[in-house]
Design a protein around this nucleic acid. Structure first.
Lengths: 234, 234
DNA sequence: GTGCACTCTAATGTATACACAAGAACACTC
DNA sequence: GAGTGTTCTTGTGTATACATTAGAGTGCAC
């Protein structure tokens, strides 16, 4: 019974972990691996081995293990029966499930955002849309901005559990390949959809916000499926 | 660049991890800790230290760390600025957010279950309700059965991302104290609500299923808030 | 007496060494 | 030549020792 230690509550605290972990090697490994996956440098299906990563980054296996476990729980790495640990690979069914979930969560976030966001947060969304229009040429910039815009909505919903789930789902999106926002035609459409979404939130219209968000996700899904499974005509 | 290792894909597999981890000490620690939290033996706010847990279970810190990290990511443990790692403590706001999220996810699961569950799965839900009626006296049994019933719905939705999110949210529920199902009056009402929910699913009526699930969660929430914050009259 | 700096300590972060499990390759038998 | 047993390789699981850090307490100066 761990409770036996008497000085339990009074004793020192240790490690205001946030600060510490920021600079920790474990965190460093985590960022590196995550970046490698997000940037597509590590393709789905590729094996990931503790020893290799450790050798790569000149570290011991301990922090590497930490990072790997974290990515595993986030769904970016997975165990495959006869292949050990690999970068997660999504089959068609998983992709469909992912988008169903994303549509629901983004819809919920938009709805809650319309109800709970502060006026400043709502205004900031409108500003972001405005700025987005001016990024026209810069594909990378648009993609980055897109991410920020959605994260702002997630925060505006003021629900930390929703935020976490959304983060998990959107992380898994990286496994599908490069963001569609890098494509000019998708970017243009998306900006219009963002404008509609932000407007609905600013008007405090939950129903409109939810359906705008859902439509936005569905549009992305259609485009994505066309690229992932072109054989299906669709 | 970890890719440099040539024999990457062809080389041996290692550890069909599922099997291995089942018996691993890490897994053992995880279960123990989780059970301690679920059973309320460790109250929210209580400090958790690697060394203590390791001493308690007669293990080294390594597997303990693993388990702790996992629980941390699941939200059952959390870092508190001047207190180190503690069993997560939910403030009122967090409780509200948790229930909002739970209502949405359970609603979604019910809706998807009505659409996607196989006939066998749907029938099985009806059977479970029937069996539940006969557990009348056995509070523990009812609580266990309740859990299974909901998990069956989650599975029936056939969406692994939804399932994972629901598991996370429901795990956090344990931090609020004992399940309400242990209370006879709540159990009785819940059985009726379950019947309605299962019926809606069996009828393949997504709208009815979703609203039944949402109503069920809201009823639980009302009861819970009454117990957690009696001062608010409500 | 109050404030600051120093040291000391407890807890976690990291490295390393060893244990163990599971394929894969090889050799041996039939 | 094919099947099977054995050994060898490889990768992860676990233990332990050491490094590091951040609080807490103590003592000194003012």
């Amino acid at each position: 019974m761990p409770k036996t230690s008497t000085a339990l509550r009074t004793r020192t605290a240790k490690t205001e972990s946030e600060a510490l972990r920021h600079g920790s090697r474990s965190e460093h490994v985590y960022r590196k691996l995550r970046h490698a996956i997000e940037a597509g440098e590590w393709a789905p299906g590729q094996r990931v081995m503790e020893v290799e990563v450790a050798a790569w980054l000149n570290l011991s296996r301990t922090p590497v293990r930490d990072a790997i476990r974290r990515l595993e729980r986030e769904g970016l790495l997975q165990h495959e029966p006869h292949n050990g640990l690999i970068v997660a690979r999504l089959d068609r069914q998983a992709v469909m499930e992912l988008y169903v979930m994303r549509e629901a969560l983004e819809g919920m976030a938009a709805r809650l955002c319309a109800r709970h966001a502060s006026d400043i947060e709502a205004q900031s969304l409108l500003d972001m849309v405005e700025r987005e229009r001016n990024l026209d040429g810069d594909a990378e910039g648009v993609a980055r901005h897109n991410r920020r815009f959605h994260e702002a909505i997630h925060r505006g919903a003021h629900n930390r559990y929703l935020e976490k789930s959304l983060a998990a789902v959107n992380d898994s999106m990286w496994l599908l390949g490069k963001p569609l926002m890098l494509l000019p035609e998708r970017a243009q459409t998306a900006v219009r959809e963002h404008a509609e979404l932000a407007a609905a939130i600013a008007c405090r219209d939950p129903d409109a916000a939810e359906s705008a968000a859902r439509a936005h996700v569905r549009a992305a899904q259609r485009e994505r499926l066309r690229r992932l499974f072109p054989e299906n005509g669709d």
